[in-house]
């Protein structure tokens, strides 16, 4: 599946990416629920200790992300690539935020809105079927923006962040959480040197663009964001995928040939095993980048002097 879109019409690109991404994420939610943690966060969890369960690590990650974003009651949060809404529900239920999520996958959006309805959160948690390039919100609309595990599906981060900056309030915060790869590997890909395994991973996810960390940071800086904090959480993703893999393996009888085809189940087994090796062997990396809008000459906000407020050291219920 080619991912070179030079000269491609934007509407065609959006249509292609929407269909490709949906092929992965619109598998039955009960399949993902069977190996993800109880929050159904399909992204790196956060381990304060290697003995943390996946459920504990999921909570840690949500808490960590909320702390970094300094989420407050009443904040209007945009979640780009909201998945099954783990962070939206956390922000709405634990902190009292109003949340809007976008995803190109119809089943995901329907799942989020259905759960929101059941939990009495309709109006506080809303998922829209929307491609990131089609975001159309008023200027300075959101207090906070988050994107967790979604930049891997975005071909042009400059275009994405250029759309984020105007809709974020001047004193807002944005957190970008995503996978990257070492520059030397990325450089080879840019030169047209790809690996069969790399292409298979992209096909598994429908579409994928693993960039290097500096490319993500460059796209942020060139689109009026100042990077406030960066945390490398690669080891956490290795532990996360190891636990996902174990759950997949343990639930073979429930999944294979029932919720998904036996071939699809075995495909997920291989890729989940492969992801954990990818993190273990430094082929794939993961980061959280916190940023704010910046304009030279602006008076700087009184940001915390230390990282103390964005540390999650022990899991607490």
């Amino acid at each position: 599946m080619g991912t070179d879109f030079a000269g491609t019409n934007l509407r065609d690109l959006i249509a292609f990416q929407t269909e490709a991404v949906s092929s992965h994420y619109d598998l039955p939610p009960q399949f993902f629920a069977g190996f993800l943690g109880p929050r159904m966060a399909y992204s790196c969890a956060y381990f304060t200790d290697e003995s943390n369960s996946l459920a504990e690590a999921e909570e840690n990650k949500l808490l960590l992300t909320a702390k970094k974003l300094d989420l407050k009651e009443g904040d209007l949060l945009l979640d780009i690539g909201c998945g099954w809404g783990s962070f939206m529900f956390y922000a709405a239920e634990k902190i009292g935020c109003r949340t809007v999520g976008i995803t190109p996958a119809k089943e995901q959006a329907a799942f989020v809105n259905g759960v929101a309805e059941k939990r009495g959160l309709a109006g506080k948690v809303t998922a829209e079927v929307r491609h990131v390039y089609d975001m159309d919100y008023p200027q300075a609309y959101f207090d906070k923006i988050v994107t967790i595990g979604a930049i891997e599906h975005m071909d042009d981060l400059h275009r994405v962040f250029a759309k984020c900056a105007p809709i974020l309030k001047d004193d807002g915060l944005m957190l970008v959480h995503g996978m990257t790869r070492p520059w030397k590997d990325r450089e080879k890909e840019l030169q047209g040197i790809t690996t069969e395994a790399g292409e298979l991973v992209k096909e598994h996810f429908g579409v994928g663009y693993w960039k290097s960390l500096w490319e993500v940071m460059e796209a942020l800086e060139k689109n009026d964001f100042e990077i406030l904090d960066h945390e490398n959480i690669t080891r956490h993703y290795q532990l996360t995928t190891e636990r996902w893999f174990e759950s997949l393996q343990d639930n073979e009888k429930e999944f294979a040939g029932k919720v998904v085809s036996e071939e699809k189940y075995r495909e997920f087994m291989v890729f989940m095993a492969g992801y954990s090796i990818g993190f273990e062997t430094s082929h794939t990396l993961c980061s959280q980048i916190l940023c704010r809008k910046i304009q030279s000459g602006d008076i700087r906000p009184a940001l915390p002097l230390t990282r103390q407020d964005m540390i999650v050291s022990t899991y607490k219920e």
Partner: peptide, 12 residues
Amino acid sequence: SVRDLLQAFKEK
């Protein structure tokens, strides 16, 4: 071929 290996695994 990694693709062939994957297919063989999927097909058992």
